[in-house]
Design a protein around this nucleic acid. Structure first.
Lengths: 108, 108
DNA sequence: ATTACATATAACCAATTGGTTATATGTGTG
DNA sequence: CACACATATAACCAATTGGTTATATGTAAT
């Protein structure tokens, strides 16, 4: 359900995630780390929240954001499997080549 | 330079890449595998070409598309490093916890 | 040469994205 | 209570995305 590709699809969001991997951060801290406005950061946080990649908690007037490791782990693992299979196929082609003396069939 | 996140950011494009991992395909074959129009597929192919994730070659009236394994490998490896570091940090936190009896500092 | 087929391109559309500024709301502090 | 600060929300904007239909172009086959 969570769209990890959407979550990772923007470099600001990737930087936010990198920040959060060290320690949880308040929105204020995140905003201060970028050159764009607070509402712009909030929109990125909302996308990450929508995709369940981060969680939000309240502490007085602050909002604290954290990585959602459970979801991250599952979705990244799926993504990694997909990408792994893409590269895998090259090895299969190489194997075929070694065995049968051809790389691709049909088109070349 | 190639934006692998953009390339993978759409499920149609991911399906196209999956198709190409088996064998090279003509545009016609790709179009026939989807329920959307030829120009729509062409746009996706153009994005994959822009990001250098696939290559195009001519064969008579056909256009043959192939995975660009070189670029794929490099960009996916970078992506995987990024995502690996995200999850890694949890292990570091766990390690800290085991060693010092705390998980996070500052915010909780 | 005509026709059929594969692909390209143009014009259009609605929704999403990534940003802005201005302003409202909520919470802690002097 | 009043003010300051952190965050939320609204209204706006330009660019991109993902699709469409209609039509042009290039190549092969009859």
């Amino acid at each position: 359900m969570p769209d990890i590709y959407r979550a990772l699809g923007d470099s600001t969001r990737r930087r936010i995630l990198s920040m959060l991997k060290q320690e949880n951060k308040t929105q204020k801290e995140i905003v201060e780390a970028f050159a764009i406005s607070q509402p712009a950061i909030k929109k990125h946080l909302n996308i990450l929240l929508e995709e369940n990649i981060i969680t939000e908690s309240l502490k007085g007037k602050y909002r604290i954001y954290s990585l959602n490791f459970n979801v991250l782990q599952i979705t990244l693992q799926e993504m990694h499997q997909f990408t792994g299979e893409l590269l895998d196929s090259q090895l299969v082609s190489l194997k075929k080549y070694v065995e049968k003396g051809e790389v691709q069939d049909e088109h070349d």
